[in-house]
Design a protein around this nucleic acid. Sequence first.
DNA 1: CAGTATCCTTAGGGATACTG
DNA 2: CAGTATCCCTAAGGATACTG
Lengths: 136, 136
Amino acid sequence: MSIINGDEHKLCFDHDPYTYAIKVFCNRWKPLIIYAIYVDSSTRYSKFLKNIPITEKVLANNLKELEKDGLITRTVFYEVPLRVEYSLTDTGRTVCPILDSIYAWGREEMIRNGIPIDAVGEMWHGYLPMDESFLE
Amino acid sequence: MSIINGDEHKLCFDHDPYTYAIKVFCNRWKPLIIYAIYVDSSTRYSKFLKNIPITEKVLANNLKELEKDGLITRTVFYEVPLRVEYSLTDTGRTVCPILDSIYAWGREEMIRNGIPIDAVGEMWHGYLPMDESFLE
DNA sequence: CAGTATCCTTAGGGATACTG
DNA sequence: CAGTATCCCTAAGGATACTG
């Protein structure tokens, strides 16, 4: 493993694991996308749009990055109509425990501060019994 | 605990624990700021600027948010010159294990991809012996 | 020392229409 | 169905000078 230290005594942003990790799986959308796949084991473009308040362009960008960074796999089924399934790679699955702990922390703080919590996330994370009607 | 579900079958962004947690401690700078305090138990404005590649305005903003969200405490010592110390609250300390796991994940991926890792972070996180000259 | 104030730039996201 | 393409917009960040 190589070590750098750019600006003498100052941490170099380009070589910081936090920056790397956060860019790869900890932005505004990726935890939700990853967890949506995790819950269903695999899922599709139109289903993300049904479950997450994300626009098409932003979803497409995030899916491409997640694929490029090796967290998800894109599989095309040449049917009519076309079907594409996204699933987690082994690497993708390694972030799930971290996502769980982030979710649990946010959840505790929101409860402590009296902020209501969304039912979909609660089902996805096992804090509420799963209601299939939410996930179709 | 109250549960909401805004748009019927779609997760509501404002009530999602990921969104909350990421806003509070998982942006571009906060992990570094929190960890800088954690390593020294308390630290000061000018020392952040020496160790982290952040500008004054952005540092000030992030410190205010961290204080407002209850992760850090600001203590003023009325000396000449003025001295201000930032330290972690109990809540602030609860994010450190999560930060550790995020760091460790990013670190592993960077190693796997042949990306060099910054020495300051490695010392802060115990992967390299601490060299005091880096932290003054 | 510990910050504000000011001005500027840009990446990221949002809405909507369109395509293979 | 699974995406692009286009246009717009604003919050976040960067540089630098200044203040109590």
